[in-house]
């Protein structure tokens, strides 16, 4: 997994609540058996006026000029500021892959759906939860300040605004460690092979019907 340590990136505000994973990456793109290439279809139904389908030539699409990601000033954004309950709905990790492939490295929102939150860490995308007032303030500053860049320091657990305001955020220590080091979680778990085997042999005794 790619490590996440420090980021200084352009922010883009998308202040809707309940942005679901169907909106982040619509289902027709889930037919792919790859992990990459989802970025051009991130927010497809909001981003383009014409219907999207897999394998399309994206240069022939009609971007919706009203949609925030299509505004020139937000080109190359790496931090997405969003509303409550971000990533709700389907478990599709393709939503994280699409954000990542587009170039988003960090999302800031008041809250996240659980599965999306979990999935993010697996691809090195950092989801930061801040209270709603702070998120609103950041999004307003972002809209009114051209080139609004946020600095995110995972080690220090801080978000720093262009004006130098420092905001602290929480992150679970285990996840933080994995993200900072870019650790392979499966490899880590396999170091506990003996514990898993012990558990299994005990369980085979107490609940043999689970091993048919």
């Amino acid at each position: 997994m790619r490590a996440f340590t420090k980021l200084n990136g352009l922010a883009v505000p998308l202040m809707r609540n309940n942005i679901d994973t169907d909106a982040i990456i619509p289902k027709q793109f889930l037919k792919s058996i790859k992990r990459s290439g989802f970025g051009v279809n991130l927010f497809d139904e909001w981003r383009y006026l014409d219907p999207g389908y897999p394998g399309q030539d994206s240069s022939e699409r009609q971007p919706d000029p009203e949609f925030v990601l299509n505004e020139e000033r937000y080109a190359g954004a790496q931090v997405l500021i969003a509303g409550d309950n971000f990533g709700c709905g389907s478990s599709r990790e393709h939503a994280v892959w699409a954000l990542d492939d587009y170039g988003i490295r960090c999302v800031i929102a008041p809250s996240y759906a659980d599965i999306f939150f979990n999935n993010s860490f697996k691809s090195g995308l950092l989801p930061i939860a801040l209270d709603a007032d702070t998120v609103n303030k950041l999004s307003e500053q972002c809209e009114t300040t051209p080139g609004y860049q946020l600095t995110i320091d995972l080690e220090a657990q801080t978000v720093t605004t262009p004006e130098g305001e420092v905001i602290n955020f929480d992150v679970d220590p285990f996840r933080k460690e994995c993200l900072l080091e870019g650790l392979d979680e499966i490899g880590l778990t396999l170091q506990k092979r003996n514990s898993i085997e012990d558990y299994e042999s005990k369980r085979k005794q107490s609940a043999p019907w689970l091993f048919n």
Binding site: R35, S91, H94, V96, I115, N118, D172, E185, I186, I196
Partner: peptide, 23 residues
Amino acid sequence: AFGIGTSEVEHVMATQTLVQRKS
């Protein structure tokens, strides 16, 4: 019973376990 993302699918395939926080 709960839904998981693809990285977790791979984790379960490879280790029969998942790293989870209790809700």
